[in-house]
Design a protein around this nucleic acid. Structure first.
Length: 561
RNA sequence: CGGGAUGUAGCGCAGCUUGGUAGCGCACCUCGCUUGGGACGAGGGGGUCGCACGUUCAAAUCGUGUCAUCCCGACCA
């Protein structure tokens, strides 16, 4: 490709509406153009990168025994109603109507379609197990799209679905996919960590997320990992061995105390002169428009996803102070489950199970109860957010935390969809059985962004070679110089003939412009044809090398063939 | 959805306080000159000032509403 013809427009400045470095660079280097919030055109350079990633995904998935197909992007409400997700998926599912008034949606994922395909076409145990995948655009009407391709509303995803006759078979495929994923990401130049996670809207029992670890804020997940063993988990799923010690406030007699202006746990602790772990904190949530009170030790925080799962709910949010007042008759800061046990759902975190004589809100403004003890031990469950330094649930060593970008995940779905949609096969004994299913996703466009987040410098993108849009750019320093231009063109033609992905920067621009663009776009290699051509030499550089290697044109060509 | 901000040429921004012919840089077109890290000179094209209503002789500027975009929280590939 000649640079003068390549459809790319680099910019002098970063876009003003971008935050993440990958987003800034993709726009500035001319890879993408925004159409609407979270919706982007992939310009030729980006499309080449995406296709590179797709090809790697395809090769590894095929190698792992999966078969590619392609399912519809626009889907009828019917199948979603059958699975129960038409009601459950929420606003993220983009709904619309066709001309006949039938309710339709844009596909955020394809469990419903694949399950209905299986129901019609996978009739016998003899056809199982099988793994089917596609690479396709998805649409999720995200609450808050951001960071360019990292969290778009429209994005490219590889999604695979496997069907089995047994849990063992599913687990085998789950491991098979985990291996394939590691291979895929490695080939893309990305190191990933498979961490335990919550299965969210997709559902199912066991799931892992593949995280690219990063210290920047664009890693939207907190990943807890053991400093010794290989335990690691998303914060929405991580647990710690609390080894809960008994806490005792020292107030042995239960009494209501006037506690003016003590709305926060810190203020209460200061007022009573106790540690925060002697206070039982009450946090009121609204889960699917019903109040739920979470009770947790004062030094711990509620992990909302865990609480949501315990409640088997769909949406969770903290109650507003007005709601808190209405529901409890008190005001925020002085809430408590006491007296409300029978009126609203109360969930007790495990951190509270060895508290003695603790302090708790009195459900009256400006009053707390000191020296409270459970009258009857409630059921304690895990709804707390792990904190750095807490002990690993496997080996007991301290946990550390880092940020991660989720580029893929794998789920053991079980019979969630097959049972709901009554999708069955016939087993050896002639009995109808629901498929045992797994599903496996990779965010292709997110992989592209994650690679940039990991590999860039002040000058631009540093592509891993395997996913770079082109491998090498040939830069004649002065296109008016006949020898330079002629040599550059010769190298270019030879590399083209050899099938190397090469760009010739034939633009009549000053050298500085061409170098800046080459670095910004991120070609892994650069061959500069300049003054030294009078001595028969050209310069060979990698994207990150400081100094050039002086080579004859033939030697330079051999670097790529 | 809650909290904060911004909408002026393809991009980045000024102008708005104090209403009166819409500006700058980059990019684009022409000519000249230049050619090793985003040169220079001369000339040129391009904007319903997000949209609607209102106030006024007069609105980018003031008021009301509305839409969009971005940032902080709940989602997820």
């Amino acid at each position: 490709m000649k640079m003068s013809k390549l459809f790319v427009k680099t910019k002098r400045e970063f876009p003003s509406d971008a935050e993440a470095i990958s987003h800034k660079l993709l726009v500035r280097a001319g890879y993408i153009k925004k159409l609407s919030s979270g919706i982007y055109s992939y310009l030729p350079l980006a499309w080449r990168v995406i296709q590179k990633v797709e090809q790697i995904v395809r090769e590894e998935m095929n190698k792992a025994g999966a078969q590619e197909l392609l399912m519809p992007f626009v889907q009828p409400a019917e199948i979603w109603q059958k699975s129960g997700r038409w009601a459950k998926y929420g606003k993220e599912l983009m709904r619309t109507k066709d001309r006949s008034g039938n309710e339709m949606c844009l596909a955020p994922t394809h469990e419903e379609v694949i399950t209905s395909i299986a129901d019609g076409l996978l009739d016998s145990y003899k056809q199982l197990p099988i793994n089917l995948y596609q690479i396709q655009t998805k649409f999720r009407d995200e609450i808050r799209p951001r960071f360019g391709l990292l969290r778009g509303r429209e994005f490219v995803m590889k999604d695979a679905y496997s069907f089995h006759t047994s849990q063992e078979s599913l687990e085998e495929e789950y491991e098979n996919m985990a291996r394939a994923y590691t291979a895929i990401f490695n080939r893309c130049g990305l190191e990933t960590k498979a961490v335990q996670s919550d299965s969210g809207a997709i559902g199912g029992a066991v799931s892992h997320e593949f995280m690219v670890l990063t210290d920047t804020e664009v890693g939207e997940n907190d990943v807890f990992y053991c400093t010794k063993c290989d335990y690691s988990a998303n914060s929405n799923h991580a647990t710690s061995n609390l080894n809960i010690e008994e806490t005792d406030s020292g107030f042995t007699e239960e009494k209501i105390v006037d506690t003016p202006n003590t709305k926060t746990i810190e203020e209460v602790a200061k007022f009573f002169n106790v540690e925060t772990n002697c206070i039982l904190k009450s946090v009121l949530y609204i889960v699917d428009s019903k109040p739920v009170m979470a009770m947790i030790r004062g030094d711990k925080e509620v992990e909302e996803t865990k609480l949501l799962n315990i409640c088997e709910g769909i949406e969770i949010r903290p109650a507003t102070s007005a709601e808190a007042a209405e529901i409890t008759g008190s005001e925020a800061g002085y809430l408590s489950f006491v007296g409300l046990e029978d009126k609203i759902k109360v969930v007790f975190d495990k951190s509270a199970n060895k508290m003695k004589n603790f302090i708790i809100g009195a459900n009256e403004p400006e009053k707390h109860i000191a020296g409270y003890n459970f009258k009857e031990m409630p059921e304690f469950v895990d709804i707390s957010l792990v904190k750095k330094g807490e002990k690993c649930p496997i080996c007991g060593e301290p946990l550390d935390v880092t940020r991660g970008i989720e580029v893929g995940n794998i789920f053991q779905l079980g019979t969630k969809y097959s049972a709901a949609m009554n999708a069955q096969y016939t087993n050896e004994n002639g009995e109808l059985k629901p498929y045992i299913m797994g599903c496996y996703g990779i965010g292709v466009t997110r992989v592209v962004s994650a690679a940039i987040e990991k590999f860039h410098d002040d000058f631009g993108i540093i592509w891993p070679e395997a996913i770079a849009p082109y491998k090498v750019i040939i830069v004649p320093v002065n296109t008016q110089d006949e020898l330079q231009m002629q040599t550059a063109t010769e190298i270019y033609n030879k590399l083209l003939e050899a099938g190397v992905e090469v760009v010739l920067d034939d633009r009549d621009e000053r050298a500085g412009v061409k170098f800046k663009d080459a670095d910004l776009i991120g070609f892994p290699y650069k061959v500069v044809v300049g003054k030294s051509i009078t001595e028969g030499k050209v310069e060979f550089k990698t994207r990150t090398s400081k100094d050039a290697e002086l080579l004859t044109p033939e030697e330079a060509i051999k670097k790529f063939i």
